[in-house]
């Protein structure tokens, strides 16, 4: 292949219009030294020389490490699930404890408030008074009945 054709291909290459086959031709052409290379091609020579060298480089495949897949391979997943479960359980327990504490505190607050205690005592005494009053009225009725019986029997003076 003469330099003219290569020059055309190189121009196509810089414009990004070459096919894979044309690029292979270029790499192949520049893989061997050309002493009397035209100036237009001297510019591309190092790049294609580099591509050729890199493509030819022999890479040692990395050794295959045998990784034993244990059932605990995803231990972090399991640990995360356990942590979340423990977290939720702890939060619920804390919530219940807190609720109980609040209830106790409220009750204590009621007992410690003198006005409330007075009101509660008043209520209790009123209830007692009301029931006692009921009993008194019944007794009065009974005594009235006794008096009437005595009058009928002529015991009354």
């Amino acid at each position: 292949m003469d330099y003219k054709e290569i020059t055309v291909l190189v121009e196509k290459y810089w414009e990004g219009e070459t096919t894979l086959e044309e690029e292979a031709v270029l790499r192949d052409f520049f893989s061997t030294p050309h002493p009397a290379l035209p100036e237009a091609l001297q510019e591309a020579a190092p790049l294609f020389g580099y591509f050729h060298r890199e493509a030819e480089k022999v890479w040692d495949a990395p050794p295959v490490k045998v990784v034993k897949l244990s059932p605990w391979r995803h231990w972090m997943k399991y640990a995360a699930v356990i942590m979340v479960a423990v977290g939720i359980g702890y939060a619920l327990k804390q919530h219940q404890q807190r609720e109980q504490q609040v209830l106790v505190a409220l009750q204590q607050q009621e007992m410690n408030d003198p006005q409330k205690a007075l009101d509660e005592t008043k209520k209790a005494l009123q209830l007692l008074a009301k029931n006692l009053h009921k009993g008194t009225s019944k007794m009065q009725q009974l005594s009235y009945f006794n008096e009437a019986t005595a009058v009928v029997e002529g015991k009354e003076d």
Binding site: Y13, E43, A45
Partner: peptide, 24 residues
Amino acid sequence: VKVNLHRARKTVREKLQNLQVYGL
């Protein structure tokens, strides 16, 4: 891919011209 490849080649060409890398 085509656009980026074209730009990449253009950039390399400019860099090599600036470094005056010619011949092999």
